[in-house]
Computed example of a mutant assay.
Amino acid sequence: MSSSTFKSPEQSRVMLSILMLPSNANFSGKIHGGYVLSLIDQIAFACASKHSGHYCVTASVDVVDFKAPIEVGEMLTLRASVNYVGRSSMVVGIRVDSENIQTGESKHCNSSFLTMVAKDENGNTVKVPGLKITNETHVRRFARAIKRKQIKIKSAKEIAEANFSDTKYLEEFKNYNVQVKL
């Protein structure tokens, strides 16, 4: 492959800043997690489409970690970059920070990883450019994406192979907040 079939994460990086309004708040007065997830999905789409040059769809939301609440009136900034590419898929990492506009105090609110798949006009998957890795941050992000993928595959296999009707689970349930009445 020539170097033109590879793109650096910087070439497809996307950033979005948006003021958090009362209409985005939940019943507790904090910004609704579903609204943040919608923004995450939108920026992942933009980043993956920019990298691939094609329309992209969300294949999976692999990780969503809410770390701090977001307040009405804060400026929310989402940063997305392609961390990993397969043949037609890309893992987009998103970092969400909020800033109190009055005090300048900033906090890390969310980290997410979405797998996006490039599609052509007929809905068929298409090959995406490779990822050009040029620094230690790129290496770390690519390696972590591989590890998360391996763990996901192993976990799915273990769950598929488990016999959840086995009575050993009923014994284990005693350690959990559950009442079993069969």
Rank of each mutant, 00 (worst) to 15 (best):
M1F: 15
M1E: 14
M1W: 12
M1N: 15
T5M: 10
F6H: 00
K7I: 04
Q11N: 09
S12I: 07
S12W: 10
R13L: 13
V14L: 02
V14G: 01
M15E: 15
I18V: 10
L19G: 11
M20P: 01
L21V: 05
A25Q: 02
A25S: 11
A25Y: 14
N26M: 11
F27G: 05
G29Y: 02
K30Q: 06
I31F: 07
G33T: 06
G34D: 05
G34L: 04
S38D: 08
Q42F: 04
I43R: 15
I43N: 15
A44I: 01
F45T: 10
F45M: 04
A46T: 03
A46N: 04
H51I: 11
V57L: 10
D62H: 13
V63L: 02
F66H: 04
P69K: 02
I70A: 13
E71W: 12
G73C: 09
M75F: 05
L76H: 11
L78G: 13
R79H: 12
S81W: 14
V82L: 08
V85W: 06
R87L: 09
S88W: 09
S89N: 00
V91Y: 12
V91E: 13
V92H: 14
I94H: 02
R95D: 07
V96L: 10
V96E: 11
S98L: 07
E99G: 00
Q102N: 12
Q102S: 07
Q102P: 02
T103H: 10
E105V: 09
E105N: 14
S106K: 15
S106H: 12
K107R: 15
S111Y: 13
S112L: 03
F113E: 03
F113R: 07
T115A: 00
K119H: 07
E121M: 13
E121F: 15
E121R: 14
G123T: 07
G123H: 08
N124L: 07
L131C: 13
L131E: 05
K132W: 10
I133N: 00
T134K: 05
T134L: 05
N135T: 11
T137M: 15
H138D: 06
F142Q: 00
A145G: 14
I146Q: 06
K147Y: 00
K147C: 01
K147L: 01
K147D: 01
R148I: 01
R148V: 00
K149S: 03
K149Y: 08
Q150G: 05
K152N: 09
K152W: 08
I153N: 03
I153Q: 07
S155Y: 04
K157T: 08
A160Y: 00
E161S: 09
E161A: 08
F164V: 02
T167M: 14
K168N: 05
Y169W: 15
Y169D: 12
L170C: 11
L170M: 12
L170A: 09
E171A: 15
F173T: 12
K174C: 15
N177G: 04
V178S: 03
V178I: 06
Q179C: 09
Q179I: 12
K181Y: 14
